[in-house]
């Protein structure tokens, strides 16, 4: 095995690092969804680390595939992930709030209730 410092090697290693980082963030998101006390809090875990995790995984895949048609598809997945995740989180958060599925003991302020 040769250890030439070629761009392809660098891209492979960066891709591998992105894949691992993305997987770890997705794992943390899963733990958050499991551990957080109520639905709205869980949606935090399901949006932020999860989206960044998916983006890092996509970056890793793109760095290893390196063909134009795959890059287009990967970019598309990323764009739709960014555009849809907050909408889904808001819909679920709203439904959870209206359904009373949140732990009021852990709420410091609720200005929506004062409306």
């Amino acid at each position: 095995m040769d250890w030439a410092f070629t761009p392809a090697h660098v891209a492979d290693w960066l891709g591998a690092a992105s894949l691992v980082a993305g997987a770890l963030l997705s794992l943390a998101a899963a733990i958050g969804v499991l551990r957080f006390p109520d639905t709205v809090t869980r949606m935090h875990a399901a949006t932020k680390p999860q989206v960044l995790g998916v983006l890092l995984l996509l970056l890793g895949v793109a760095l290893r595939l390196r063909t134009l048609s795959d890059l287009g598809m990967v970019a598309l997945v990323g764009v739709f992930q960014l555009a849809t995740a907050p909408v889904a989180a808001q819909m679920i958060g709203r439904a959870a709030y209206r359904g009373g599925r949140l732990n009021r003991d852990l709420l410091d302020a609720d200005e929506l209730a004062d409306r």
């Binding site: 943390a28 733990i31 958050g32 935090h44 960044l52 709030y97 709420l107 410091d108 302020a109 409306r115």
Partner: peptide
């Protein structure tokens, strides 16, 4: 901020025994 928020949420997700408090502001 996406990176910062992600690391923050990931950290409190795996921190043992930590229950985050929250609030709703208008």
């Amino acid at each position: 901020e996406l990176v910062r928020a992600s690391l923050h949420v990931a950290r409190i997700a795996v921190q043992p025994g930590y229950v985050p408090r929250s609030a709703i502001v208008a």
